[in-house]
Design a protein around this nucleic acid. Sequence first.
DNA 1: TATTTTATTTAAGCTTACTTAAATTCATTA
DNA 2: TAATGAATTTAAGTAAGCTTAAATAAAATA
Lengths: 219, 219
Amino acid sequence: MTVSVENFVKVIYKQSQLSKADTRLSTIAGILNISNAAATDMARKLASRQLVNYTKYKPLTLADKGKELALKVLRKHRLWETFLYKTLNLSLHQIHIEAEQLEHLTSDYLANQIDHYLGSPLTDPHGDPIPAFNGQIETDQSHTQLSNAKAANHYTVARLSGSERDFFEFCTSNGLMIGSTLWVEKQISSPKMTEIKTNKKKILLHEDFTKLIFVKPAN
Amino acid sequence: MTVSVENFVKVIYKQSQLSKADTRLSTIAGILNISNAAATDMARKLASRQLVNYTKYKPLTLADKGKELALKVLRKHRLWETFLYKTLNLSLHQIHIEAEQLEHLTSDYLANQIDHYLGSPLTDPHGDPIPAFNGQIETDQSHTQLSNAKAANHYTVARLSGSERDFFEFCTSNGLMIGSTLWVEKQISSPKMTEIKTNKKKILLHEDFTKLIFVKPAN
DNA sequence: TATTTTATTTAAGCTTACTTAAATTCATTA
DNA sequence: TAATGAATTTAAGTAAGCTTAAATAAAATA
């Protein structure tokens, strides 16, 4: 499998998992930074290889083999992130950058060795679930975006699903780490913002960030 | 830089370092498992990019930029080998297999982090020198191939420069590891073989292996 | 030195993964 | 429902990295 093919199915998979799933061709092409024409081409080719279900003018979906491949790539990505975080202490942003490359040239054998070394973790340092060797993946339905959290409630940070350096630096410097608790002061509707309290600090967060922060009710 | 380009300059560099340096086009093509025509093509292209010195019908040599690139790739390869050996305990053969892939998708930043984590080692687990960030590389002239060692002398194993599983498994199971000492009993000329003694065991080694085992006089 | 063998190059062609530009289909809305 | 605009597809073309087959140059040998 080439890097292009792996990224293509990976992006479709990730898009299909979002609350607002959008797997239209132009969306996929946009994320991959290729032309729509190139995406059409790839879609047809991968359909002939039974990786993608492709009907002209319809959104793309993954066939079984394509989903399997996407999960394999995602597994390698997240195992690398966890491994680099633990051994080399790279930042949340940096592990993503490096894993984005390494995921494509990692053998199943090496992935399993890393998994074993780490004690088969269920999530990576961003809180994203790590698919098992057989493709099984935990999908905790109790997670909600901070933008949808209810005011006057305690929550625990469960996932930081951004990929930009600014986002991670903001989170790190404001104590928004996996496992930390926060209090939702209030939700503001226009522009969509959320006021929260962490460790005595009050922070006003724009939707751009609250959509990327997943929380679950604190026990 | 693509994988093909990196491998091309890497192979030229490694060939140029051998005692019997052979950088003819067909030799390079053979190692890379591509046709001579493909190698000619690549040589011309890389010459135009100032990576390779190419004169029709002449052996290939590296230009400064090409040597720099080769050393960068080699550095990443050997850092990965050392890292995987230390953290994951992979075998001497396995670290080579994995590093062969990872070397191409590793940022300079990540390589430096690995280097720092390892305490800037001078050699990898096979005894091969690790180029520094600036391209400096140790070339210990006191190493000789076991096939050229003098009979009735003590030596220390300094490098195991093969890449096949069989070779490493043989060395491992016969106590031929970096740093272990051996006594050269005698050299046999036809067929070229070497009789050695390690830890009470006597072993008769064929040139196929003794050419790959580098030793230095034991102190 | 002439001939043969071997190495290298040239030529033509293929696949992957892209591009831009034009044509077509779909969805929306007047 | 007909027109408009956006999304998608088709068409034509490019670069990288290969292939095989034929032509040519270099090296070896008689």
